[in-house]
Design a protein around this nucleic acid. Structure first.
Length: 319
DNA sequence: TCTGGGGTCCTAGGACCC
DNA sequence: TCTGGGGTCCTAGGACCC
């Protein structure tokens, strides 16, 4: 079974059960490819409300045992287990979630986020992997560099080309070679992480949102301006209601265009004052869209509308 | 009928300001 | 008689995460 988008259209796999994974079905794979690999695959559309409800049940259970929790998305997160008996507390969390929510949880216990996350992935489903303080390098060293959070497909390809295959290889690299391979702060960050160095604390408070957006991949590439206008205006309204729901206004409006060849263009405009008005957001977005299409015409596979530069909503005084 | 959707962070150049 | 330096904002693109 796979959960994801339209298997007869342009959908991708969001996740798949272990039976499907044995056929090579993976997250982010196109549904068409997944079906080729596993012809009897059953496709299910996602039900985000259901997942949210289950997620809340899990976190309500965890919060009772661990006061400082940082959810990441719906289905994972970091817990500050303290110094007293972190492994005992981890077992208690696992047990409570199994008994009260009837879900299994995979946990990793370690001295920092990056090691804990990698450890949590080592034994699924339902495992618990402990990395003792001081054992970080030894634990990370033999693992594939792709497993390091922050080393995505691009970076991993570059590293592999240079003969760096494991996290240990990256950890042992002299700084000049890291800088040549992955310039800027990203390279330093990844090498630190490869050495088990990660100063990020567990955040008890969710971060302020800094942008809202919506985008749609069309069933077929769209050239017709009228259709683009209809779809775009809907999206502008969705963005405006998302802002209003959060009590926010935005100063920057942007559009995203993806052409038939998958190349992607963005255009943004920053206004003098922030707004949550759907009509105003749409007028800005349409202007940007027309400009982009004038610069590069062609059928669009995807259109997106977004807003950033968020501030608190405020009502101007009338008197 | 290959390649989703909602996000964050980083980079880099140009404008602008003191 | 060349063309400072540092900081911030804006824009566009890219990499990454769940």
């Amino acid at each position: 079974m796979a959960v994801g988008g339209d298997p007869d259209g342009r959908g991708v796999v969001a996740t798949a059960n272990y039976a499907a994974r044995r056929f090579g079905v993976r997250s982010a794979m196109s549904c068409a490819e997944a079906r080729r690999r596993c012809p009897d695959l059953v496709f299910v559309r996602p039900d985000i409300r259901e997942y949210r409800a289950w997620s809340e049940r899990v976190w309500a259970t965890v919060d009772v045992l661990v006061p400082v929790c940082e959810p990441v998305g719906l289905d994972e997160g970091y817990l500050d287990l303290g110094d007293d008996d972190p492994v005992g507390l981890a077992r208690a969390v696992q047990l409570a979630v199994a008994e009260r929510v009837r879900l299994s949880a995979s946990l990793g216990v370690a001295s920092c986020k990056v090691v804990a996350k990698i450890a949590s992935d080592r034994d699924k489903p339902g495992g618990l992997t402990v990395v003792s303080p001081g054992g970080e390098r030894e634990f990370l060293s033999p693992l594939a560099v792709r497993l390091l959070p922050g080393a995505g497909p691009r970076t991993t390809a570059r590293l592999l080309e240079a003969g760096i295959a494991t996290i240990g290889d990256l950890a042992d690299l002299p700084p000049e070679r890291v800088a040549a391979l992955i310039p800027g702060r990203v390279g330093e960050l990844l090498r630190d992480r490869a050495r088990g160095v990660d100063p990020r604390p567990v955040m008890a408070e969710p971060a302020e949102r800094i942008s809202v957006s919506t985008e749609r991949t069309f069933d077929r590439d769209v050239t017709d301006r009228g259709e683009l206008a209809r779809r775009g205006e809907e999206m502008a309204h969705d963005v405006a209601s998302s802002l209003a729901r959060r009590g926010r206004c935005a100063r920057t409006v942007w559009v995203k265009l993806r052409y038939g060849d998958f190349s992607t263009v963005t255009r943004s405009h920053t206004m003098a004052a922030a707004t949550d008005d759907a009509g105003l957001i749409w007028r800005q977005a349409w202007h940007l869209l027309e400009g982009a299409l004038e610069h590069r015409p062609g059928p669009l596979r995807l259109l997106g509308v977004g807003a950033s530069g968020l501030s608190e909503q405020h009502q101007l005084a009338l008197f």
